[in-house]
């Protein structure tokens, strides 16, 4: 239902919105861009693995786009985004080969460790990265066209929207494929995967590289929109933010990335306007409410409402739609 009805409606509203009103496009461009790394986190969560280091790929994409735009006279956003994706995929492969050997807290912590090393490199290599001041990124051309700021932001809004929709659909289809189902199976029984003749590590590595790709693309879009890439992009708080948004939106469905990203940005912007520096307090309270009353996130709430109204079959979601026993075969074996 979400893919067939909600996505077209959201896309339609998103297409019309900048034409009908003003003041939303900058906010929403960031929502679209930041939903991408969250989508990557949701992908890994299907295998029961959480990364507290995906900001490193976000920063990889951002800095790569920055370097490319600065290196090419006039810059070209298409080349910059392609380079950002390429760099993120390579980084995802290099880090992934190592971290997919580990699970749960070790997986999370190794990701965190790698990202903090990367953060330090960005901070210390001042001559290359600009240090803590960051890398300023001139406005690139779009398909050879140099644009004024308002025109550029208008086009970037639609570019980010289109890329997000493609990625949402792509990840949705991937999760429905045999490989996607095998990824979900990692959460409950890796032993059986081995005895089906498959490598759980390899399956997780593929998902990890895709998640790095998504984070890198998101980072590049944010960087070219804001015109700057800073080491803060790789900082652990940013990684935590992606996980926060994934939980907020709901990890059982790709739409959790979109819903979470929208609500997070909205609360952040609104709370900053009213309570200034204590906006994190508001976010914390919202997360508490979500964890206590809607552990399957905003998308889970949507499903619950739909189920309550009896207007359709509840969509199976790993965390919210179904209510599995929560026990793996290994745990059952231990109990026996």
């Amino acid at each position: 239902m979400l893919m067939r009805i909600v996505l077209p409606v959201v896309v339609l509203v998103a297409i019309v919105l900048p034409l009908a009103t003003s003041g939303w496009d900058a906010f929403l461009t960031l929502v679209w861009a930041k939903a991408l790394p969250v989508l990557g986190i949701i992908l890994l969560l299907q295998a029961g693995q959480v990364s507290f280091g995906h900001a490193m790929f976000f920063a990889t994409g951002a800095y790569t786009a920055g370097f490319v735009i600065r290196a090419i006279p006039g810059g070209e956003i298409v080349i910059a985004l392609a380079a950002a994706i390429g760099a993120s995929v390579v980084a995802g492969l290099l880090v992934g080969v190592f971290v997919v050997r580990y699970r749960y807290i070790f997986f999370a912590m190794f990701n965190l460790a790698f990202s903090m090393v990367f953060y330090s490199l960005l901070e210390k290599f001042i001559h290359i990265t600009g240090g803590s001041d960051g890398l300023s990124i001139p406005r690139p051309e779009i398909l050879g066209q140099a644009m004024e700021r308002s025109e550029y932001e208008f086009v970037l809004y639609y570019l980010a929207l289109a890329l997000l929709v493609i990625c949402l659909y792509g990840v949705h289809r991937f999760l429905d494929s045999p490989l996607g189902h095998t990824l979900k199976a990692i959460k409950t029984n890796e032993t059986r995967i081995e005895y089906l003749g498959l490598s759980p590590r390899r399956v997780l590595l593929i998902a990890y590289i895709i998640s790095a790709f998504l984070a890198g693309l998101g980072g590049a879009l944010v960087a070219v929109f804001q015109g700057i890439a800073t080491p803060e992009y790789a900082y652990w708080v940013r990684s935590g933010e992606f996980v926060f948004v994934a939980i907020l939106g709901g990890t059982g469905n790709v739409f959790g990335a979109l819903a979470g990203s929208f609500v997070y940005e909205y609360i952040r912007v609104t709370a900053t306007a009213y309570v200034g520096d204590t906006w994190q307090l508001t976010l914390g309270l919202v997360l508490l409410v979500i964890i206590l009353f809607a552990p399957s996130g905003l998308v889970g709430v949507l499903n619950d409402i739909r189920g309550y109204l009896g207007k359709g079959r509840r969509e199976p979601t790993p965390s919210g739609g179904k209510q599995p026993s929560g026990k793996t075969e290994k745990q059952r074996g231990e109990e026996q």
Partner: peptide, 16 residues
């Protein structure tokens, strides 16, 4: 001790 993918249906297990 049967090794199944407990969060997936029997058919999904088989198709994997």
């Amino acid at each position: 001790i049967p090794q199944l993918f407990t969060e997936q249906t029997v058919l999904e297990n088989m198709l994997i």
